[in-house]
Design a protein around this nucleic acid. Sequence first.
DNA 1: TTAACCACTTGCAAAACACAAGCGGCAACA
DNA 2: TGTTGCCGCTTGTGTTTTGCAAGTGGTTAA
Lengths: 137, 137
Amino acid sequence: MRSDCPLNYGIEIFCDKWSLLIIRDLMFFGKRYFNEFLHSEEHIATNLLADRLSMLEKEKIIRKSKDTQHKQKIVYSLTEKGIDLLPVILTIGLWSEKHADIKLNPGRDIILGEAKKGLTRGIDKMRKKLIKEHEVG
Amino acid sequence: MRSDCPLNYGIEIFCDKWSLLIIRDLMFFGKRYFNEFLHSEEHIATNLLADRLSMLEKEKIIRKSKDTQHKQKIVYSLTEKGIDLLPVILTIGLWSEKHADIKLNPGRDIILGEAKKGLTRGIDKMRKKLIKEHEVG
DNA sequence: TTAACCACTTGCAAAACACAAGCGGCAACA
DNA sequence: TGTTGCCGCTTGTGTTTTGCAAGTGGTTAA
């Protein structure tokens, strides 16, 4: 670590071009398998995806488990630490919606709308949903 | 741009290991000069600092102006787009405080405390202060 | 006049990234 | 029971970004 600043702690872990996109896919698009992350529109390379998944697991942001149906498949899901990145992801999304100089996906309003109405309440509501989906707690 | 996802828009601009730290220094530590950013505890290199400052200016997150007193000095300050990164920085800080497995700087509680009491209210209060300090609006 | 300070720029080595191909384990099908 | 294809990766290679050190041209204080 370069410093003991809380901001820097988070930056060193997930501030790269891919980690938060993987977490987004887990949060909002129900993706759980290696191949599903691979086919997101940003097109991450297989080696980088493998790197990020093992890093995020090491940091206890995601959890790896075996699929009970298909033995060759591995299921990824969010831990509580991962779910708690929801405010970070939403605030970045809201900032982009306000300030982007290019046209963004209007479909994402469904996700951001709740947070736009009231940040704290929107986060609480979405957090509860995620805790159920990822069997946390 | 790799996609039209709002999250991705923000990520492509400021999700690297340095940009948010420079913005933090502008927001909370009153830093305004090249040399001041240079001497933060994370120790950015001069070429990277120059790169990031020109990128952040190009993205209209910061503003460059000449010091009226010292002609050789250049003053950096936040635009409204930059000030609006406050929620992003605060939520990363709060996440770190909650989940870090190492000891973090307890002095930062002064900054995070207001947001911890109530996120929306804390942001509003700090935002108003920043708008005055950076002469925005 | 000279020494220090200012915001950078340049050069180079190391690390990270991006792309393509391949690999061993598992599964569906003939 | 052999073949074909999907599964989560790993490996190899070239390119880009980063990190460090040194230097530069203009400015300022003594």
